[in-house]
Amino acid sequence: MLITYTGSCHCGTVKFEADLDLEQSTYRCNCSICRQTRFWPAVAKEGGLRILQGEDQLTRYTFNTHKNEHYFCKHCGVRVFGIGTETPIGKMYGVNIGCLDVLGDKELAALKITYVDGLHDKFAPPEYIDHL
Results as ranks from 00 to 15, higher is better:
residue 85 T to F: 13
residue 79 R to N: 08
residue 77 G to C: 07
residue 78 V to G: 10
residue 63 F to R: 03
residue 57 Q to E: 15
residue 78 V to P: 00
residue 69 E to C: 00
residue 63 F to H: 11
residue 79 R to M: 14
residue 82 G to E: 13
residue 79 R to I: 02
residue 78 V to Y: 12
residue 78 V to H: 06
residue 87 T to W: 03
residue 65 T to D: 11
residue 88 P to A: 00
residue 84 G to M: 07
residue 78 V to N: 11
residue 69 E to N: 09
residue 55 E to S: 14
residue 81 F to H: 12
residue 71 Y to D: 09
residue 61 Y to N: 08
residue 77 G to D: 07
residue 82 G to A: 12
residue 85 T to I: 04
residue 61 Y to T: 04
residue 73 C to I: 04
residue 58 L to T: 05
residue 72 F to H: 12
residue 82 G to Y: 05
residue 78 V to T: 15
residue 86 E to K: 08
residue 69 E to V: 02
residue 83 I to N: 09
residue 80 V to L: 04
residue 58 L to E: 08
residue 75 H to P: 03
residue 55 E to T: 09
residue 56 D to L: 06
residue 74 K to I: 01
residue 73 C to V: 04
residue 88 P to H: 05
residue 76 C to A: 07
residue 69 E to Y: 01
residue 56 D to Y: 06
residue 71 Y to R: 04
residue 72 F to Q: 04
residue 68 N to T: 12
residue 86 E to M: 06
residue 65 T to N: 08
residue 88 P to Y: 06
residue 88 P to E: 01
residue 88 P to K: 06
residue 58 L to V: 07
residue 87 T to C: 01
residue 77 G to W: 04
residue 81 F to N: 01
residue 62 T to V: 14
residue 70 H to P: 05
residue 55 E to A: 15
residue 71 Y to G: 02
residue 82 G to W: 08
residue 55 E to Q: 15
residue 70 H to K: 10
residue 85 T to S: 13
residue 60 R to N: 12
residue 72 F to T: 03
residue 74 K to W: 05
residue 74 K to H: 11
residue 83 I to K: 15
residue 68 N to D: 13
residue 70 H to A: 08
residue 87 T to M: 00
residue 73 C to W: 02
residue 68 N to I: 02
residue 60 R to W: 03
residue 80 V to H: 02
residue 84 G to R: 07
residue 63 F to G: 01
residue 81 F to K: 06
residue 60 R to D: 09
residue 58 L to Y: 10
residue 81 F to Q: 03
residue 60 R to Y: 07
residue 75 H to M: 11
residue 79 R to C: 01
residue 80 V to N: 01
residue 68 N to H: 10
residue 85 T to Q: 11
residue 77 G to S: 05
residue 86 E to C: 05
residue 69 E to P: 00
residue 67 K to E: 11
residue 63 F to E: 02
residue 78 V to M: 14
residue 86 E to D: 09
residue 76 C to Y: 08
residue 59 T to L: 10
residue 74 K to P: 00
residue 83 I to V: 15
residue 65 T to W: 00
residue 75 H to I: 15
residue 71 Y to F: 15
residue 62 T to L: 03
residue 59 T to G: 04
